[in-house]
Structure formats: structure tokens, C-alpha cells
């Protein structure tokens, strides 16, 4: 009983995910500021390190405006739902050796589905906002998620094919340098699809502020906006953790295995994503569609063939 409560609320549950999310939020802001050659506010805490906490608490306590003519339940429950769904994958991730809350033989499936339904919740937020810009944002998010998730699913399935299991713990334990090399193309495809799924540049089309005023975010303010933002960053964390688990051997290190390696691998993906964000403008919806269906999906299918081929070479009978 105590164990499950601890797992649900402290580690790797609510508190842990919140800490990670806020930490990621803080890291993103500081990292991108230095790439921008920008000096942020330096008044709160040492070198302005508390600024994010202040911003978040400000957002949390601000008035949350519900516009006229929307369904208030749909409008207000969606951010909460989005946050909860984004936090759930944490339960399936083997954070440390032997530490996983739900050790299911369908862990991978759960992970992929929990990540995959998030865009549909965001579409509903746009749909429920009764705003032309939000609606356009919702339509864009649907278009993008359908195109990008195909690639995403195909790429995430390659480890399962290679190791013949959907259990995340088993995937991690059976991973090696060789499997890492075999899965490298799958990882690259997963990373690109991740950019599309998380609406990061160059695929930040659904919440393009210069085009459709942040899309589904337009009508959100105060607490609801805070929850949506938190959901977005919890989703970041889930996807990074998924990538680390599937392709990079999770907590496995060079000389010893430790949570430290898990942490650094996730941070590495975050840094790569931020660097792309700081140097790449947005592409259009049509360009995204043709990129996704003309290149990414065929590549992902080819990759499956490659994984099967590699499996027959090195992993058969093992």
C-alpha cells in the first residue's frame, strides 16, 4: 500500500514528473537564452535561476478566462486530462535497474499509445475554444499527428521486432552496443518524428504564433494555460524517456549502470532538440505533409526491413 502510494505520488509519480517537467522548462529557457545571446531577468535567485518558478506560480494563480459560447466543461477539463495522460507513461519506464512501476509485457504498446493520443486531446482543446484560429490549429494538429505518428509508431516498433518483446524492461536488459548500432537509423527516424509530434521547429505548425496565434492555445489563460504548458513539457519528458529506453539503453552506462546515465541521455536529446529549434524556421503544412509521406514513412518501412535483416543475421537463436 505504502509502496504504491509512494510510486504514485513521489517516485516515479506525480512529484518526480513535476520536478522533471519544471526542470526541463527551466533548462530549455536558460539554454535557448544563451543560444539567442539573450540576457534574461537576473533578479530572482542566483543569476535569475528562480525566474521559472516565479513565472509558473504567476501563471498558476492568474485568472483563467473562459470565453463566451464555449462548452465550459470541455474547455476546462481538456488541459487537466492532457496533463494526466502526459504523466502516465512515466509508470511504464524502467528508470533504474529493476525499478518500474507497471512491469507489463505490453509496456511498449502502452507507451506508444499514451504518447500518441495526446495530439487528439489538444485537437479537442482547439475544437472546444470556439475560435477560428484555435479551430485552424486543431485541424493542423490532427493533420500533423496523423502524418507523424505513422512514422513514430513504425520507428518505435523496431526494438520490439529486434528483441521479440514488448516488455520495456526486457528491451533494456537485452540491449547492447550491437543493438544500439542496428537501431541507429530507427533512432534517427524516431527523433525526426518526435519533433513533429511535439510540435517543435521545423514542425511547429499547429501552434504557429505568427500564422494562427498559437493555434489551440489562443483562448487559454491562467491556470488552464499553465496546465497545458505543463502537459506539453510532461510530454517532452515522456518522449525523451521513451527514446532513451527504446534505443539508448536507458540507465546502462559505460562502466557502471546508474540513473545518472538515463538523466544525461535525456538531456542530450533535449539539447539536440533545442539546437534545432534555435536554428531552423518553420515549414508549411504542405511541405510537412509531403516530407512525412514521401520520405519519412517509406524510410521507416525500409528501416523495419533492415531491422528484420539484422535480426536474422545476429539475433536469430540467441
Amino acid at each position: 500500500m505504502i509502496d504504491s502510494l509512494f510510486a504514485a505520488f513521489i517516485f516515479p509519480g506525480l512529484l518526480y514528473v513535476l520536478l522533471w517537467t519544471i526542470g526541463l522548462f527551466w533548462f530549455f529557457r536558460k539554454f535557448i537564452a544563451s543560444l539567442h545571446k539573450r540576457v534574461g531577468p537576473s533578479f530572482n535567485g542566483k543569476g535569475g535561476s528562480y525566474q521559472t518558478l516565479f513565472d509558473l506560480s504567476k501563471l498558476l494563480t492568474k485568472e483563467s478566462i473562459t470565453p463566451d459560447g464555449v462548452n465550459p466543461y470541455l474547455f476546462s477539463i481538456m488541459p487537466l486530462l492532457a496533463l494526466i495522460i502526459a504523466m502516465l507513461p512515466s509508470a511504464f519506464i524502467p528508470w533504474m535497474d529493476g525499478l518500474v512501476v507497471v512491469d507489463s509485457s505490453y509496456g511498449l504498446l502502452a507507451l506508444v499509445i499514451l504518447i500518441g493520443i495526446e495530439p487528439f486531446l489538444l485537437f479537442l482543446t482547439g475544437f472546444g475554444s470556439n475560435n477560428k484560429y484555435s479551430f485552424l490549429g486543431g485541424v493542423r494538429i490532427l493533420t500533423q499527428s496523423i502524418s507523424m505518428e505513422t512514422t513514430f509508431f513504425l520507428a518505435s516498433l523496431s526494438p520490439a521486432l529486434l528483441f521479440g518483446t514488448m516488455n520495456l524492461t526486457e528491451i533494456v536488459t537485452s540491449s547492447s552496443w550491437l543493438s544500439f548500432l542496428i537501431l541507429l537509423p530507427a533512432f534517427a527516424i524516431y527523433f525526426v518524428a518526435l519533433l513533429g509530434l511535439l510540435e517543435q521547429p521545423p514542425f511547429n505548425i499547429p501552434d504557429a504564433e505568427q500564422e494562427i496565434v498559437y493555434g489551440f492555445y489562443t483562448e487559454y489563460s491562467g491556470t488552464n494555460y499553465f496546465l497545458l504548458k505543463l502537459a506539453e513539457f510532461a510530454e517532452f519528458m515522456a518522449v525523451f524517456a521513451g527514446a532513451t529506453t527504446l534505443f539508448l539503453g536507458a540507465y546502462k552506462g559505460i562502466y557502471f549502470d546508474s540513473y545518472f546515465f538515463f538523466f544525461m541521455k535525456m538531456l542530450g536529446i533535449a539539447v539536440a532538440m533545442m539546437t534545432i529549434r534555435a536554428a531552423t524556421p518553420r515549414i508549411t503544412l504542405a511541405q510537412m505533409l509531403s516530407f512525412s509521406w514521401k520520405y519519412m514513412v517509406p524510410l521507416a518501412l525500409l528501416n523495419l526491413a533492415w531491422v528484420l535483416f539484422a535480426k536474422s543475421l545476429w539475433f536469430m537463436g540467441a
Binding site: 543560444l35 539573450r38 521547429p201 524556421p281
Partner: peptide, 16 residues
């Protein structure tokens, strides 16, 4: 020009 296609880095660098 870059701000309008969603990239703020050049704007910041130029401001500098």
C-alpha cells in the same frame, strides 16, 4: 523576416 517564420535567434543576434 525570420521572426515571421518562427525563428527568433537572428532577431536576437541582430539586436545585439
Amino acid at each position: 523576416f525570420f521572426n515571421n517564420i518562427g525563428l527568433h535567434t537572428l532577431g536576437m543576434w541582430n539586436m545585439d
